[in-house]
């Protein structure tokens, strides 16, 4: 076996110079990159996670609100429709009642007019009758004067004459 150009113990003996440089370089890396770059990177990732979570929650909320709003709208629409139907119905009723009232009033009026006319007619009739009676009595008196003026032959003829007169009156 020839002498090898490497020393096996060197492999597992830490070289002080390399320990020094590794320590120095790592410490610089830790304080420079670790604290100034890696930490902010983790923070950015966390922040973004939170933002996404918030955004998702907000979207869900908005969706729920939208649905609420939609159902509200539908209810409102339904209510409005009912309201208009009600108003229409009332208007119809009012119209009908006005027409009915007018009708009754017209009827009453007509009835009153008819009644008045009747009264008037009755009065006229009475007046006419009274006039007729007066006329009759006047006529009777005239007839009587005429009769008296004539010669009454017999009781019998007299009677017949009177009867005929009366009969004439009745006809009138």
């Amino acid at each position: 076996m020839h002498i090898l150009a490497f020393k096996p113990m060197e492999l597992i003996t830490p070289d002080l110079g390399l320990v020094f440089w590794t320590t120095l370089i790592f410490l610089i890396f830790w304080f420079l990159v670790g604290k100034l770059a890696l930490k902010p990177i983790v923070k950015s990732i966390k922040d973004r996670e939170l933002t996404i979570e918030d955004a998702l929650a907000a979207a869900d909320k908005a969706k729920a609100e939208m649905q609420q709003l939609q159902s509200d709208n539908a209810a409102l629409l339904k209510e409005a429709r009912e309201e208009s139907a009600k108003i229409l119905k009332e208007a119809k009723e009012v119209k009908e009642s006005i027409i009915a009232e007018a009708h009754t009033r017209a009827k009453d009026e007509a009835a009153k007019i008819v009644a008045d006319a009747k009264l008037e007619i009755d009065a006229q009739k009475k007046a006419a009758l009274a006039e007729v009676k007066n006329e009759v009595s006047k006529l009777s008196v005239d007839i009587a004067q005429k009769v008296i003026g004539r010669e009454l032959d017999s009781a019998k003829d007299q009677q017949a004459y009177i009867n005929s007169l009366v009969e004439k009156i009745n006809v009138n």
Binding site: I12, D15, L16, L18, V19, T22, T23, F26
Partner: peptide
Amino acid sequence: GNIAFTFALAAI
């Protein structure tokens, strides 16, 4: 894979 490197990191 150098023992000095791993020693330094382990010490820290």
